[in-house]
Amino acid sequence: MATTFPFAAIVGQDEMTLAIQVVAIDPTVGGVLVLGDRGTGKSTAVRALADLLPPIQVIKGCPYKCAPNKPALACHICQPEKGLHASKVCKLVTENRPVSVVDLPLGATEDRIVGALDLEKALSQGVKEFSPGLLAQAHRGFLYIDEVNLLDDHLVDLLIDVAASGENLVEREGLSIRHPARFVLVGSGNPEEGELRPQLLDRFGLSVQVKTPQDVALRVEVIKRRDAFDKDPDAYKAQWQEESDKLQKRIVKARKLLPSVVIDDDMLTLCATLCQQLGTDGLRAELTLLRATRALAAMQGKKKVHAEHLKTIAPLALRHRLRRNPLDDTDSGERVNRCLQDILAV
């Protein structure tokens, strides 16, 4: 397995690294969309996400990494009285596994994504068995799509259905399989190469815009760090291991604090007013603001959400949900900030 660039070593692109840490703390925020110039570290940052994630406990032998403490959400293999623990006297065996960050290639077929009949076993042994796909691998983890705006429409429809239901249903070649597929969707791309369909765009909790840094000193530092990594990836990652461990501990601490973080009615009213004045569709925007500001507060060790948290999160959560105004060429993030300032000034 290729060594990934350490997340802690990423310099610049603060908005992108912040959004990734927020969804690592609370995956229910709904994922991250990273759009911007080519060569700005979008895919590098996403693939480095694994550095932030502590291992998860799974039922040993389960191809879907089912959680042992959530039997209601288990797959058909791990359901009580079935499969891996069918015997009432058999103790459930668990193990720790790293959280998956699964790449979905643009050229992947539908069979590769959802899973299909295991042809090798069918031909050699005459056994009809399901071979799980990328959605099964991404369960309880992250599904990353580079150049997401170039994804085929029929695959977009498939992802929207699975993301909404949290289940993958496969009915083909005489198979009928239903398995859990709850993952955080992370996408990156260059908006100049095409736009995302609104239905998929709305599935991303946070949206980040990255630009080529113009500060010469920063550009030089990026080049030096990347060159050092390319020369000896393992040694460079070991050099940053202590900082990576600190980041992971920060994420774990924030996850523990998250349930106790309070967001009062005044703050919820502020979130709802902001979304209402910006004209966002539905209520998903408010829910994203609630979850993301709470995660940011937890990351900072705060037990209550404040207006400063909303100021930081609002552009990330709302910029991709705004309707286009042909008479206003202002950046969508600036429109969010301007509206929030007007509301706070009242």
Rank of each mutant, 00 (worst) to 15 (best):
A298M: 05
W240Y: 13
I263F: 04
L104I: 05
H85Y: 08
C78W: 06
V186E: 00
F142G: 07
A307Q: 15
D152S: 15
V210C: 11
G115D: 04
I59L: 13
K121Y: 13
L175W: 02
G279H: 12
K65V: 00
G31D: 07
P105Y: 07
D227A: 15
G166F: 02
E173G: 03
D37C: 13
M1N: 08
A136L: 12
P326I: 08
Q300K: 14
F7M: 04
I77C: 02
R335H: 01
A292P: 01
D152F: 00
L49V: 00
S332I: 01
P105Q: 10
D265T: 12
F229S: 04
L318D: 04
G301V: 09
E120N: 13
N190H: 07
L287W: 04
A116E: 06
R255T: 09
H139P: 02
A314Q: 03
Y64I: 10
G279S: 09
P98R: 12
S100I: 01
Q300I: 02
E171L: 03
D146Q: 13
H306E: 14
V29G: 02
R182D: 11
G174C: 08
F5L: 05
G61V: 09
L201F: 03
D264H: 12
A307Y: 07
P105M: 13
D153A: 14
R226V: 10
G107C: 00
S332F: 06
G279T: 07
A136K: 09
K224C: 06
G189A: 06
A292T: 09
K82L: 08
L274C: 08
R250T: 12
Q276C: 03
D227N: 09
T3K: 10
L92M: 14
R203I: 07
H179L: 02
E334Q: 11
H320G: 05
